[in-house]
Amino acid sequence: MKLRPLHPIVIDLAFLAVAVTDAAINIDPTDLLGNASMGLACVALIFRRRWPLIVFLLTLPAALLSTGIFASLIAIYTLASLTRRRPILIAGGVALIACYTLPWPPPPFTSVSGFDTIITLGYAVALAMAPALLGQLVQAQRDLSLRLKEISEAQEHQRLLTTQTVLAKERAQLAREMHDVVSHQVSLIAVRAGALQVRTNDPETKEAATTIRQLSVNTLDELRHMVTVLRASGSLPTDLTPQPTIGELAQLVAGSGISATLEADLPDDVSPPVQRAVYRTVQEALTNVRKHAPGADAAVRVWAENGDIRATVTNTPPTRPMLALPGSGHGLLGLRERAELLGGTIESGPTGDDGYRVQLRLPQKKP
């Protein structure tokens, strides 16, 4: 039986209760400054998820001026579980060790025992490292869960693409069979019916031949329409029909699974092939951001300039480590071939801030 995770509010209340209990046990009626620092530390824990570094700094006086230490331990655990800046975490651990080790007010130098100081320092190091390492473990577990979810989504997307590939091949094969076999035979029926219609003098036979010929012609029109639809669906769109347009970019960006923005300013007379090329380029670029730059933000911009349609997809550096995901490696190559067929170009490469940019240029009207 899988245990359900506790609600964050329950965890926060439990941590706050532990800190308040620790402060209550260590209250010294004669030490107003120490009592105030413990009270400040307990109140600060309410905001530990929103401002973990500030809350940790507010709990340090309690570790220095009083014997209440649990608020500081909870704060450094929260900081370790949320921050990705190791220098800040190390500095925080050193500050906590110093506050716990150094007595306040400082005693005369001659009264300090070296052996006692070493024991206290070792205890302080162990006390500070335990919650810090636990926080880092929680952060690693959270990142792993996110990566497993992304891998699952990528595998589901790959399965969908494989299914669409099989459907496209079957549709293309069916279109060929209908064009080469069925259409040919129906055409022969129409020709023979027309010949019979001309040669016969029997009214009933002439009427039957006319009906057969008309039905054959109608059937040929329907077959041609079906063949056109089947062949059009062989280019592997995300939705088999209809083909995507620039008007669907907002839905594509919103459903990309990453933090992305869209800026689009295009005229109304963009040709359907150009619209499909822009859509596919943005789709492939956002997929690559999700696969190769986990945690990055993306910005999509589409506009018209000097008779060309331009599109750029720029992403920031990844914030989480990348795991190898399955892929054909032909995505950008296919986009480049599509752009060249339309008389355009596509360029891609890293940006100056360790991000990545894909740039598409297409003539508004095919040359």
Rank of each mutant, 00 (worst) to 15 (best):
P237E: 07
Q275K: 11
V270S: 01
S235A: 14
V270T: 09
E284D: 08
D221H: 01
V300W: 02
Q283D: 13
A250D: 13
V302W: 04
N288F: 01
V302L: 05
A304D: 10
G295S: 01
G255I: 06
V300D: 01
G295K: 03
V274A: 06
L266M: 10
A298N: 02
A254R: 03
T241L: 14
P272Y: 04
A296L: 10
L266R: 00
T281H: 08
A277S: 05
A277N: 00
V282T: 10
M226I: 11
L262E: 05
L236S: 03
E284I: 01
S233F: 03
R231Y: 11
D268M: 09
D269S: 04
V278H: 10
P273R: 12
R280Y: 05
T245D: 02
L262I: 04
T219H: 05
E222N: 14
G257Y: 04
T241A: 13
V300F: 02
L236M: 12
V289M: 06
I258M: 08
P267T: 10
R301N: 10
G307N: 05
A296G: 09
W303T: 11
N306G: 01
L220V: 13
G307T: 06
V229M: 14
V278R: 13
Q283Y: 04
N218D: 13
H225R: 15
T281N: 04
A293V: 03
D297I: 11
E305N: 15
A299V: 13
P237Q: 09
T281Q: 08
A293F: 07
T228P: 04
Q283H: 07
A293P: 05
V302E: 00
A277V: 04
M226F: 09
I246H: 04
R280I: 10
L220R: 05
P267E: 14
L240S: 14
A304L: 09
P272Q: 07
G257R: 00
V253F: 01
T245W: 01
G307C: 05
A232G: 06
D265W: 00
T228H: 09
V278P: 02
N218E: 15
L230P: 10
V289G: 09
L240G: 09
H225E: 15
L223A: 07
A260L: 06
W303D: 01
V229S: 14
N218G: 09
S216G: 12
H292R: 07
A250V: 02
G295D: 03
H225F: 12
M226D: 11
S235C: 12
P237N: 13
P272K: 11
D297E: 15
P244V: 04
V229K: 14
L262F: 05
P237M: 08
R231I: 14
E305A: 14
I246F: 08
P267M: 06
Q251Y: 03
R290L: 09
A298V: 04
L249K: 02
Q251D: 14
A250F: 11
V300M: 02
P273T: 12
L262V: 05
V253K: 03
P294G: 07
S256R: 08
N288Q: 07
I246M: 06
P272S: 00
I258T: 15
E248C: 01
D268Q: 13
R280V: 10
V227S: 12
G307K: 13
T241H: 13
M226P: 02
V282N: 00
V270A: 00
L262K: 09
E305D: 15
